[in-house]
């Protein structure tokens, strides 16, 4: 465990807690894409298949349980909770996320490190996570006033993977044979998708103006 990866995991945890805080306390999911939340639940479900078979560390297991629990409870809140549902902008959250799932599954069946069920599912989760934010970014472009918690949620979610890239660079130089193109390229694509959001988010923060993304 290096500082970049720990910082990345903590940033990811913060993004999830910010979102849970928003939904659980003010019972609002304004500006949040249910499609992205469902994709993330699928990402964790297919990535952590080994949670009960391979024990790596207490930290690893606890974090997996937190990510699984939070992503599924957020989907539950947005689908079932009457009060939260009222603030869900379903007219604008219309990204066809099936168009993301199928290509990622096909790609995982074509490009993977081992052709086993667990490995293909894990690879699928890596590809899917790279594009899972798209419905959320599209919704933000359609959302007039993005509230702070939503902006912070997306910012931390994007920041965590960029910290992971530093972790991969660090591990490449410090651990022999640590080469994983699939994770690296997917992580890079994922981070690049946030590039324009980061630009608008940081400039809105610097000029102290409301965050708005150009349509």
């Amino acid at each position: 465990m290096n500082a970049f990866r720990l910082a990345g995991d903590m940033t990811h945890l913060i993004s999830v807690l910010v979102l849970l805080l928003k939904i659980h306390t003010i019972k609002s999911c304004a500006g949040i894409s249910l499609k992205t939340q469902e994709l993330y639940a699928l990402v964790f479900a297919t990535r952590y298949l080994d949670i009960f078979t391979d024990f790596i560390s207490l930290y690893n297991t606890v974090m997996k349980l937190i990510f699984l629990g939070s992503s599924f409870s957020i989907v539950w809140y947005m689908r079932r909770h009457k009060l939260v549902q009222r603030s869900y902008d379903k007219d604008h959250d219309t990204f066809r996320h099936q168009l993301l799932v199928l290509p990622c599954l096909i790609l995982a069946l074509l490009i993977h490190e081992q052709f086993t069920f667990k490995e293909v599912m894990w690879t699928f989760s890596i590809y899917l996570e790279a594009v899972a934010i798209l419905p959320q970014l599209v919704l933000l472009q359609r959302t007039r006033n993005i509230d702070n918690l939503t902006g912070q949620y997306v910012f931390f979610l994007g920041a965590y993977r960029s910290l992971y890239i530093l972790n991969w660079i660090y591990r490449y130089f410090t651990e022999p044979h640590y080469v994983h193109w699939i994770t690296w390229i997917s992580g890079l694509v994922q981070t690049l998708l946030y590039a324009d959001f980061f630009y608008y988010y940081i400039s809105s923060w610097k000029n102290n103006v409301k965050l708005t993304l150009p349509a």
Binding site: R5, D54, I56, S57, N60, N167, H180, T183
Partner: peptide
């Protein structure tokens, strides 16, 4: 063999 090392990441 045991799980490859990189699976220790989240």
């Amino acid at each position: 063999e045991s799980e490859p090392s990189y699976k220790d990441e989240l």
